[in-house]
Simulated assay, not measured.
Amino acid sequence: MRYFTIQPPAELKPYVRFYWVLEHELGADEPSYIYRSVADGCTEMVFHYRSMFDELENKNGENAGPSGIQFQTTQYRRFITKESFGIFGAYIYPFAVPCFFNIPSSQTSNLAFDFDTFLNKPGTELEERVVLAADNYKRAEILSEFLIARLRQNMLKDDRMATAIRDVIHNKQYRTVTQLAGAYNLSARQFDRKFKEYAGFNPKTYMRLVRLQDALRQYNTNKTLTQIAMECGYYDQSHFIHDVKEFTGYHPSFYFSGKAEGTEYRNT
């Protein structure tokens, strides 16, 4: 399995965390591959340029899982393919959703659309250009041009909330919503409303999603589950277990065992 990231151009860096690529060749002893996406506070644009995945829903059947947009979500999803695959994606801050798509982030949470449904003809044309591009660096170039053109038409309206969301994701200095609201000179109620508009979830839920992603990045570090829980700010082991199970569908001991679906790329 091959996984790597590509940095966006300077104009997009405040909005796009990175582009990513996941490729895998199925062997004779591997008739299919199942990928499990987990809850995440960022939005992803995903392009399947080699083969397609079907979505597995509650073990009752398969539905098409085409290229498209998965907005910030508290849910996990499962996909299967029986062919070797290549996927190109963009990992986007939630506050960039209004800039790129002219819709409040609070109206997109837990939603996913194919490009044709969400963006109509421009989405169909974008998907075709990205999928048919010569390589992943050309894909990054094409998508960057598309996003920059949209950004220039619809600039961010509240940079303060963008900074607050970045603080939650990157700085880790605020452990409570009250602390975070105080840092931006807003009451907890005012902050909750504004934050949700740009993050898609209220601050408490969003901080849980970020804490989960922090924990999952400790995969393959040889740390104990207790160490991971403490370093990522969980109150106790039961709190850690509850969130990991809710947002990934797995008990932490199994997720971090190396046997869970969709974790293979973390070893690359």
Rank of each mutant, 00 (worst) to 15 (best):
M1G: 10
T5D: 01
Q7A: 05
E11D: 11
L12I: 09
K13G: 01
V16A: 11
R17P: 00
F18E: 08
L26A: 11
P31K: 05
P31F: 06
S32L: 03
I34A: 11
C42L: 13
C42W: 07
Y49D: 11
S51N: 12
M52Q: 14
M52G: 13
F53R: 04
F53A: 05
D54P: 05
D54L: 09
N60P: 01
S67G: 10
Q70I: 08
F71L: 06
Q75F: 08
S84G: 08
Y93V: 06
F95Q: 03
F100Q: 09
F100N: 09
N102G: 11
N102W: 01
P104R: 15
S106M: 09
Q107R: 11
T108Y: 03
T108E: 04
S109I: 01
L119K: 13
N120A: 15
T124R: 12
T124S: 15
E125N: 13
E127Y: 06
V131H: 12
A134V: 03
N136W: 06
Y137H: 06
K138N: 10
K138D: 15
E141Y: 09
L147R: 05
R152E: 08
N154S: 08
M155K: 14
D158Y: 09
D159S: 09
D159T: 14
R160K: 07
T163H: 07
A164P: 04
R166I: 09
V168K: 05
V177H: 10
V177P: 12
Q179N: 05
A181W: 02
A183M: 05
Y184I: 04
L186D: 08
L186R: 13
R189F: 00
Q190S: 12
Q190F: 01
F191Y: 07
R193H: 13
K194L: 08
F195M: 05
K196T: 07
E197T: 04
A199P: 02
F201N: 04
F201P: 14
N202D: 15
K204D: 14
K204R: 13
V210Y: 02
R211L: 10
Q213P: 00
Q213M: 11
T221K: 04
K223E: 06
S238C: 04
H239D: 15
H239N: 15
F240E: 02
V244F: 06
F247H: 12
Y250G: 07
H251F: 09
P252A: 00
F254R: 11
Y255G: 04
A260S: 03
E261M: 01
Y265D: 01
